[in-house]
Write a protein that binds this DNA or RNA. Structure first.
Ligand SMILES: [Mn+2]
Ligand SMILES: [Mn+2]
Ligand SMILES: [Zn+2]
Ligand SMILES: [Zn+2]
Lengths: 125, 125
DNA sequence: CTTACTATTGCAACACTGTCGCAACAAAAA
DNA sequence: TTTTTGTTGCGACAGTGTTGCAATAGTAAG
């Protein structure tokens, strides 16, 4: 399935690059300006995840957030890091340190999803 | 706000005790048998969380799971542990080891939510 | 440039999860 | 038993994410 370049795809990618942090669907949609259909944004982001361009975070608000992959080789992705969701400014950012978790014998991990919510330095004041 | 004992409350609690693992709303509802209204189960579980009887896990399927608190004093709860969600048998269990995550300076954590999904020993075969 | 192929889009409809208001009900205390 | 008020059932609702389908528009071949 060969990918095509479209204005929608470019717009979503730009929004993510410009933000620098993880974004939810609605934030992306707001950033773009409603010129693109909701379902299209969902599909673009799912495609990005399939292609290893972004990784998906399911936060403790039940919503999905998307962050550009950085420092991931195309073959070996490492996403065993936590994310911080600020309850004040509603931002989600990747925390740098990678984590390893011991699993019971015979268990195989497929996906890591770590989110800590609280207040960032700016909102703590 | 004083709590009352009702058949519904008892039924939900029994379901959790009997399961031994974390349960989602629909699993609880199925376990009870649809005699109780959906909204009631939601409210009972929210009450349990408020009262420190259960803790809430938001898994990477976007759904909420509830597990009885064990080894938590009523004042000091420690829920900095991961949970494992099996993609095969759709069970969610608490992993024993508690985790500490370093946050950037000035950040304050309010909630920890760690989920690893994959395949448990039984479903790995 | 033109054509053919098909990935992508927009729209509507849908499934699902979780919440809330309100009147009726029932647990607990008086 | 009566009173109080926490709890329930029902319906409606908001939000998130997915999917089917016809129309559109990248892309590469001719
Ligand atoms: Mn990556
Ligand atoms: Mn606890
Ligand atoms: Zn903040
Ligand atoms: Zn399993």
């Amino acid at each position: 399935m060969k990918r095509r370049n479209t204005p929608s795809k470019t717009a979503v990618l730009s929004a993510l690059e410009q933000a620098g942090t993880a974004l939810s669907h609605d934030k992306i949609l707001a950033s773009i300006g409603d010129s693109i259909d909701r379902a299209t944004v969902y599909r673009i982001l799912n495609r990005f995840c399939d292609d290893g361009i972004t990784h998906r975070i399911v936060a403790d608000d039940g919503k999905q957030y998307f962050a550009l992959c950085e420092g991931c080789s195309h073959e070996a992705h490492a996403h065993n890091h936590f994310h911080f969701r600020c309850l004040g400014c509603d931002s989600v950012e990747c925390l740098s340190s990678e984590v390893t978790v011991g699993l019971p014998k015979g268990y195989r991990a497929e996906n890591f999803n770590g989110v800590i919510s609280g207040f960032c330095a700016g909102c703590e004041a």
